[in-house]
Computed example of a mutant assay.
Amino acid sequence: MPTDTNIDRRTLLGGAVVATAASTVATATYAQTDASSLKGKSILITGCSSGFGFDGALHYARKGAKVIASMRNLPRPEADTLAALAKKEKLDITIIEIDVTSDDQVATGVAEAERLAGGALDVLINNAGVGYAGPIELQDMEATKLIFDTNVYGPHRMARAVLPSMRKAKKGLIFNISSQLGRVIAPSAGHYSPTKFALEAMSEAMAYELVPHSVEICIIQPGGYPTKVWVNRNELAKDLKDRLTAEQAAAYPALVSRMGTEDGTGRNTDPMDVPRAIADIIAMPAGTRPLRRAVHPGMKPQEAINKVSAETQIAWLGNSPFGPWIKAVHD
Rank of each mutant, 00 (worst) to 15 (best):
T3E: 14
D8C: 12
R9P: 03
A22F: 08
T24I: 13
T33A: 15
S36H: 12
G40H: 10
K41C: 08
L44R: 01
G47T: 01
C48Q: 00
C48N: 01
C48D: 00
S49I: 02
D55K: 14
H59A: 15
A61K: 02
R62N: 14
R62M: 09
G64Q: 09
G64R: 06
A65P: 01
V67A: 04
V67Y: 10
I68S: 00
R72H: 02
R72T: 00
N73L: 09
L74W: 05
T81S: 05
A83C: 00
L85M: 14
A86D: 04
D92V: 01
I93M: 05
D99A: 01
T101W: 03
D104I: 12
A111G: 04
E112I: 01
E112N: 02
L116F: 07
L116H: 03
A117G: 04
G119T: 07
G119H: 10
D122Y: 04
L124S: 02
I125Y: 04
I125T: 02
N126S: 08
N127K: 07
N127I: 04
G131I: 00
A133F: 08
P135I: 10
I136Q: 07
E137P: 02
Q139S: 14
D140L: 12
E142W: 09
T144L: 14
K145G: 00
I147E: 06
F148Q: 02
D149K: 06
D149Y: 12
Y153N: 06
M158L: 11
A159L: 12
V162H: 05
M166G: 08
A169N: 11
G172V: 10
S178N: 15
S179F: 08
L181I: 03
R183D: 04
G190F: 09
Y192D: 03
L199E: 02
E200G: 00
A205Q: 14
M206E: 11
A207G: 03
A207Q: 04
P212C: 09
E216C: 05
C218P: 04
I219T: 15
I219L: 15
G224Q: 13
T227K: 06
N232H: 11
N234C: 13
K241F: 08
K241G: 03
D242W: 06
D242L: 14
R243W: 09
R243H: 11
Y252G: 01
P253E: 10
A254N: 14
L255K: 11
L255N: 12
L255F: 11
V256W: 05
E262P: 01
T265I: 10
G266E: 13
G266T: 14
D273P: 04
D273M: 11
R276T: 15
R276F: 08
I282S: 05
A283Q: 09
M284D: 10
T288K: 10
R289A: 09
R289Y: 12
R293C: 13
P297V: 06
P301H: 11
E303L: 12
A304L: 13
N306F: 15
K307D: 15
S309Q: 13
S309E: 10
T312F: 09
T312A: 14
Q313K: 12
I314R: 05
G318L: 05
S320V: 03
K327R: 15
D331C: 04
